[in-house]
Design a protein around this nucleic acid. Sequence first.
DNA 1: ACTCATTGTTGTAGTATGCAATACTTCGCA
DNA 2: TGCGAAGTATTGCATACTACAACAATGAGT
Lengths: 164, 164
Amino acid sequence: MPRSSPALDATDVDAVTDAVLTASRLLVAVSARSIAAAGDTITLPQFRLLVVLQTRGPLKHADLAELLQVTPSTASRMVDRLVTVGVVDRQHSTVSRREIVLALTPDGRKVVRQVTARRRKEIAKIVSRMPDEARHGLVDVLTAFAEAGGEPPASAVAPEAVWT
Amino acid sequence: MPRSSPALDATDVDAVTDAVLTASRLLVAVSARSIAAAGDTITLPQFRLLVVLQTRGPLKHADLAELLQVTPSTASRMVDRLVTVGVVDRQHSTVSRREIVLALTPDGRKVVRQVTARRRKEIAKIVSRMPDEARHGLVDVLTAFAEAGGEPPASAVAPEAVWT
DNA sequence: ACTCATTGTTGTAGTATGCAATACTTCGCA
DNA sequence: TGCGAAGTATTGCATACTACAACAATGAGT
């Protein structure tokens, strides 16, 4: 009877790890599909950049790099490409001539909207297929897991660590 | 009272999506840390390659590329680098001179072991911090979620889609 | 005005990735 | 047996992501 003890035994850990890995794989697959659906125009790092711009509004290069956890040079060149494609807009700041403000273009917002919509739709579809009991427990259990890992809830967190 | 109806309403979907995104973020962070701990020698795609070799045993280039979902040229060049580092071994097949068999070196196995151990340890630590009720429900709920998404359990699945 | 921190870009380099072309090997069939 | 088709790996070429270091332009404080 390994399960009734208050402490965790090896079986528990293995089972949980397996479950976690499996769920993670599914999430990654959903993510990949939702981005692939945006056409061949956008890569995954580029999408992360767009999401940050969408949720945080216009940003300076340095702030963007910080949020994406990349160096300013990386951010600068990614922006180069996205400006060329037409999803990001570069404008000199009105307050400081060395700052450059980055913002999504209407096209950029459209890309984010499409990918996000598809992702939520896929998750909703999966959730709706779950047995009722499991579905009702999902939010509580996942929240507890995230809290135990020190991760703030999605609704209150900076989007820099946004889903792969 | 939106929650007692059998069908899912928008609130459910939003709550679940948020919970899922949050948990996913945590998993990605754990993954990144576990690989970073292997030193600066190994990148994430390289680690995936090592895991595939470890779990599937020696492979041809073509099979490896298939499992990693990359083109043969990509696999070939990744192997180039890993051979140079000394974690992968290239040998001509004994049965067909056009095939080349790839395998982990002892060093390669060591890297995989270290990263995997650290990852399981981190997950175990997080799980141990969860409230008892949530922890006991975690396996069932995540399993149901993965099944609803059509993902086979980790213990019975090919490792090619291994955790990011 | 001079110095120094801030901000962005560019040079250089290594990894990841795909498509197309190439070289070598094996197999099947005439 | 010999030739063409298919399999297998590699290389050439192109693009993206990434970092570090050097540099240029700007702004702030003394």
